[in-house]
Each structure stands twice: as structure tokens, then as C-alpha cells.
């Protein structure tokens, strides 16, 4: 990288950083307003478990939680706290929100990473196989597998896995307590990761296959073959490297979509992660938890997008960010 390129890249990085800030600000406003548009607030829910609503007591709680303040004041208080690293207190547990959120992040992160590894490994490998063995029995079988991956809802697949384990092994792979070792945790998360990663692996498989088929018909592949390059070298060194660009894009998008899949899988496999917790917090209108969690997820998605953009440059040196 010469001096001009380095300046271009740093300029690009600065622009991206400010764009990220603007995106996060926009998301913070949208989530804040949307939450308040949903009917009912925490006080309704607190009273729901008591089977009645006492308007006087309800007002008192709203006052205690600052929900009687104008919406702009509430927003300013939240953002101000966030800037200071103070996420506020969870409404339901009355504990600091950070104490509720922090332990759940690593659990979901591991599950998401495992699901992503699963979907990429299986998707790319089987996609390549399917393409290089086009119109063979193996190709047909893999296409059926990928179609079923796209059409099976992950909650149903998860339940099938649980039922099969109970029926055949008398054991159920659900989260009980924090696993004692890395390997035990890996074993426990493998099945849920497979359940949630199956859909995206099917997507990656189909995209890899079509991208590979397109590349395999390119002139430079034919040239490589004419020059006597082995099939393995043609397929993996020349074709796959060039077919991966759209696959990286889809893996990046899938990483963001994974949160949706995790909600269901964490519920079925009883995994105490952030996705399930987020749904629970929305149900309870636990604003501090929902707002801060959504901001965290938004930050992750923005960062993943940034990493994907950087990967483009690595995979295809022709891409220049400065221009």
C-alpha cells in the first residue's frame, strides 16, 4: 500500500466511523419511539401479575421510574447515561441493566459464531461439491438438502432434534447450568448451532453452487484447464476464490439475520442468551433492557458489515475504498 492508498483508506475509515455513529443515532431514536408506541408499559405488566390495576399505585410506579416525564427528557436521560456507560436499572428485576445483559452476551455470541462456522463450512463445501458434480446424483441429493434447509423452520427442527435425543438416548441437550469446560459447552451448543445454522448453510450452499457454476464457465478457468492445471487447482485456487465474493456478502447478511433465528433456538433449547432475553424484555416493556440490547445488536451488525466490506478488499484486490 503506497502513501496515497493509505490516506484513501484512512479517509474511508473516518467516513465509515461517522456513518456508523449516524446509523446508531437513528436506530436509538427509532427503537426509543417504537417502544413507546407499543400499547402498555411496565406498570401495566407489573399489575398484570397481580390480576388488577390500581391507577393510584400505577401512577406512583410511573413516577418512580421516570415514565411520567416528557419523552424527550426520557430519551436525553437514556442517551446521557449510555454515553457515561450507565445503562440504568432493569424495570423487572430492579438490578443494574448491565448485570442482566452482560452474562448473556457471551452465550449468544458463542452460539452465533458456531452457527456461522457451521453454515459457512457446510454451505461452501457442499456448494462447491454440488457445482463441480453438476447434474450427478450427489448434486441432486445436495439440492434437496439445501431446499429442505430453506423450508424447515428452525423451531421445528430444534424440537425434532430434542425429541430424537430423548427417544434414542434418553438425554436432552438443553442448557442446565454454565458448562464446566470448553468442550462440554461446545458439545451442548453444537446441536442448537446446527439447528439455527441449517437454514443459512442451505442458502450459502445454493449461492456457492450458482456462483461456482458461473465462474467455472469463465474463460480464465478454461485457460487454466488448457494450461494443464489439475481439477483441484482449477476448482479451488481459480474458481472458488473468485466465486466467494457474493458468498461473503450473504454470510455477512446472514450474521445479522442470525439474531432472529437465535430467538427461536434459544427458546427451544433453553439457552440463556440475549436473543431470548430480548423477546422477554419486550414482552415486559423493560425499556432499559430492550433499548440497550437493541443498541448492542445494532453495533454488532454495523461492525459485521464493516468487516465484510474490508474482506472484499482482501478477496478482490481490485476493489479500492478510497475511490
Amino acid at each position: 500500500m503506497n502513501g496515497k492508498e493509505a490516506i484513501d483508506v484512512s479517509g474511508y475509515l473516518i467516513r465509515r466511523f461517522f456513518l456508523m455513529l449516524v446509523t446508531l443515532f437513528g436506530i436509538s431514536v427509532v427503537i426509543f419511539v417504537m417502544l413507546r408506541l407499543v400499547p402498555g408499559n411496565i406498570t401495566d405488566i407489573i399489575f398484570d401479575s397481580a390480576g388488577f390495576v390500581n391507577p393510584k399505585q400505577k401512577q406512583r410506579i410511573e413516577r418512580e421510574l421516570g415514565l411520567d416525564q416528557p419523552i424527550v427528557t426520557q430519551y436525553a436521560r437514556w442517551i446521557g447515561g449510555l454515553a457515561r456507560g450507565d445503562l440504568g436499572y432493569a424495570y423487572v428485576s430492579e438490578k443494574p441493566a448491565i448485570q442482566e445483559i452482560a452474562p448473556r452476551i457471551p452465550v449468544s455470541a458463542k452460539l452465533a459464531a458456531l452457527a456461522l462456522v457451521f453454515s459457512t463450512l457446510f454451505g461452501v463445501t457442499l456448494g462447491v461439491l454440488s457445482a463441480v458434480r453438476q447434474d450427478t446424483t450427489l448434486d441432486y441429493v445436495l439440492r434437496i438438502v439445501s431446499l429442505s434447509g430453506l423450508s424447515l423452520p428452525s423451531f421445528w427442527l430444534g424440537l425434532l432434534i430434542l425429541m430424537a435425543c430423548v427417544q434414542w438416548f434418553g438425554w436432552i441437550p438443553i442448557y442446565r447450568s454454565t458448562p464446566e469446560s470448553f468442550w462440554k459447552e461446545l458439545g451442548l451448543l453444537a446441536l442448537p448451532a446446527a439447528a439455527v445454522g441449517f437454514r443459512s448453510s442451505a442458502l450459502v450452499m445454493r449461492l456457492t453452487r450458482s456462483s461456482m457454476l458461473e465462474v467455472l464457465r469463465q474463460d480464465y478457468v478454461r485457460t487454466a484447464r488448457a494450461k494443464g492445471a489439475s481439477e483441484t487447482a482449477v476448482n479451488y485456487r481459480h474458481a472458488l476464490a473468485n466465486a466467494l465474493l457474493p458468498v461473503v456478502t450473504i454470510v455477512g447478511i446472514e450474521a445479522a439475520f442470525l439474531i432472529g433465528g437465535l430467538i427461536v433456538t434459544e427458546t427451544v433449547f433453553n439457552i440463556p442468551g440475549v436473543a431470548r432475553f430480548l423477546v422477554e424484555a419486550i414482552r415486559w416493556r423493560d425499556y432499559p433492557i430492550v433499548q440497550n440490547l437493541v443498541m448492542f445488536i445494532a453495533l454488532v451488525v454495523v461492525l459485521v458489515n464493516f468487516i465484510v466490506d474490508m474482506l472484499y478488499m482482501v478477496l478482490d484486490p481490485r476493489i479500492k475504498f478510497g475511490n
Binding site: 400499547p39 402498555g40 401495566d44 405488566i45 399489575f47 398484570d48 397481580a50 390480576g51 388488577f52 390495576v53 414482552r283 415486559w284 416493556r285
Partner: peptide, 8 residues
């Protein structure tokens, strides 16, 4: 009705 606001 969303279960959380039923009694309300």
C-alpha cells in the same frame, strides 16, 4: 390481546 396488557 397481548397477554401483558390484558388486565390493563
Amino acid at each position: 390481546i397481548d397477554t401483558s396488557i390484558w388486565h390493563a
